[in-house]
């Protein structure tokens, strides 16, 4: 699989002002029944930033993403996704099995005319490394390829905000790394704001500009990842950040079991 970071990727400052959405959350709360899942969430995400939300399972990180993406409504507080086009990528590819790959990508571009739809969808398929697979049924694709189609579907509508809910959770280790690189590449090219939920701290450090650690429904840590891109696996600065976050997550667990 052949991936490259385009030399034409614009300067972060410029593309931030044009393509990304500034996301603002104020006093966000969400409960399911008597259980308060999220409370007191105030986050300001500048346009074009790549944010990772990490935390233990059940900490409310996926709920937070669903609120940002508008899939759920908050009990209190406001969400301003900062733009019209919010796209979601789920843990499962969620492709329509009865539509061929190209038609599945076109789902992300419902309002354009047929010609534009087909042309743009083919372009995006090429971008995710699936040139010529447009005529296949999803059933014949591997898990990683399906997730690429899902990524293409999310990208084809030129989102200002891309929300990813553990998009790589079900993939094997090598495919994961490939997909991480692919996501980083398109993010650098397009300049949208990206928010990825993950339980994998290594993945968060590899991808994000900023990591939010969610614990018991609140933001427990807000960490800037100032490691230059493209990032090398095993970078010392990155490892230090990863260590800090893991310490925090694991210490909490230790106090629980004590």
């Amino acid at each position: 699989m052949n991936m490259h970071v385009s030399d034409a990727a614009p300067d972060p400052a410029i593309r931030a002002s044009t393509r990304g959405a500034r996301v603002v959350l104020r006093g966000l709360e969400k409960s399911f029944g008597a259980h308060r899942v999220l409370h007191g969430i105030d986050i300001d995400i500048p346009a074009g930033q790549f944010v990772a939300i990490v935390g233990r399972s059940g900490c409310g990180k996926s709920t937070l993403l669903r609120l940002i993406a508008g899939l759920d409504q908050p009990a209190a507080g406001t969400v301003d996704p900062g733009g019209e086009i919010v796209r979601l990528m789920f843990q499962e590819p969620r492709l329509l099995p009865w539509q061929r790959v190209l038609a599945n990508v076109e789902v992300g571009l419902a309002h354009a005319d047929r010609q534009t739809r087909t042309r743009r969808s083919q372009d995006v398929l090429a971008q995710v490394g699936l040139t010529g697979r447009g005529g296949d049924w999803p059933a014949v694709l591997s898990g990683g390829q399906k997730q690429r189609v899902a990524l293409a579907r999310a990208l084809v509508g030129q989102p200002t905000l891309l929300a990813l809910d553990e998009p790589l959770g079900a993939l094997d280790a090598l495919t994961r790394i490939e997909m991480q690189e692919l996501i980083e590449t398109v993010w650098r090219e397009k300049g949208f704001t990206a928010i990825v939920v993950t339980h994998d701290v290594t993945e968060a450090v590899a991808l994000a500009d900023r990591i939010l650690v969610v614990e018991d429904g609140r933001i427990a840590m807000d960490v800037q990842v100032d490691v230059p891109r493209p990032r090398r696996r095993g970078d010392a600065a990155a490892a230090a950040i990863e260590g800090r976050i893991l310490d925090r997550l694991l210490t909490r667990q230790a106090t629980f079991s004590a």
């Binding site: 993406a69 508008g70 899939l71 796209r87 979601l88 789920f90 499962e92 969620r94 329509l96 009865w98 539509q99 789902v107 992300g108 419902a110 309002h111 579907r153 509508g157």
Partner: peptide, 26 residues
């Protein structure tokens, strides 16, 4: 599949599109 219905709504499909592209073939 509930997941597909949610995907359809998240991608801005109209009720008619959800019926024709997800419910009926499903």
């Amino acid at each position: 599949d509930r997941h597909l219905l949610e995907m359809g709504r998240a991608y801005g499909m109209t009720g008619r599109q959800i019926f024709l592209r997800i419910v009926l073939p499903g």
